[in-house]
């Protein structure tokens, strides 16, 4: 199945996309012959336990999950499988979180922290690793990001190859029409956040671009 693992709705202050519009736009993509089975909302520096997209997911035939994108001292990290326990241990609102602490706490709470757009100039994990930072228990990073600028993809690929990491894909959509530009193709079905974490840890996935999802 194809899931976009990195999207922002208007809950993030720099997005102009409503969640319902994302869902409707997947219909446009499907009519054009592309495949998208769902998406994960990764709002900046927040996680709302009470937000429930199950009705929208059911009516639109999509998997709609929740995660978060956090600011750390090693760049941005996408966090999947957020639990109340993790929220009690890590202040999501902090800019410049200790990345090693975040990764360890995510591991301990049944979540997973995945470096976002690691090739990004200035703030990507690639630069910190070049300066000698260790990866710790990080085994998955975002390989394809829909907002990558020229040169950033090459850096992400180099980081992944040199450290034998696995790579996800996400659009980093801040506009409706950007959703699905990059996605992650999973071998197994995923119905909720716990299953997403399980599959990310199992490693049976690969990053794809929207063009890779056309049938036939």
């Amino acid at each position: 199945m194809f899931l976009d693992l990195h999207t922002h709705s208007v809950a993030s202050d720099d997005s102009r996309a409503e969640v319902g519009q994302f869902a409707r736009w997947t219909g446009v993509l499907r009519r054009k012959g592309y495949r998208i089975d769902g998406f994960v909302l990764t709002e900046h520096r927040q996680f709302d336990l009470d937000k429930d997209y199950s009705a929208l997911a059911k009516s639109s035939g999509l998997i709609i999950l929740k995660g978060s994108e956090l600011d750390t001292d090693r760049g941005h990290f996408l966090v999947y499988g957020v639990t109340e326990e993790l929220l009690s241990r890590v202040d999501f609102t902090v800019v410049g979180l200790d990345a090693a602490h975040l990764v360890a706490e995510a591991d301990a709470c049944g979540a997973i922290a995945v470096p976002a757009h690691p090739g990004r100039f200035g703030i990507g994990l690639y630069e910190y690793v070049e300066q000698g930072a260790g990866l710790g228990s990080i085994s998955v990073v975002e390989r394809l990001n829909g907002s990558n600028r020229p040169g950033e993809q090459e850096r992400a690929d180099a980081l992944i190859e040199s450290h034998a990491l696995r790579g996800t894909g996400g659009s980093d959509a801040h506009l409706v029409s950007a959703i699905g530009a990059c996605m992650t193709s999973f071998d197994n079905d995923i119905a909720d956040e716990a299953e997403l974490v399980r599959e990310l840890r199992a490693g049976a996935f690969r990053a794809v671009r929207l063009e890779d999802t056309t049938q036939g």
Binding site: R16, A17, S147, R149, P150, H174, L175, V176
Partner: peptide
């Protein structure tokens, strides 16, 4: 010219 989005909106 490189396709980088400088300004976006609705």
């Amino acid at each position: 010219a490189e396709g980088t989005r400088l300004v976006i909106g609705k």
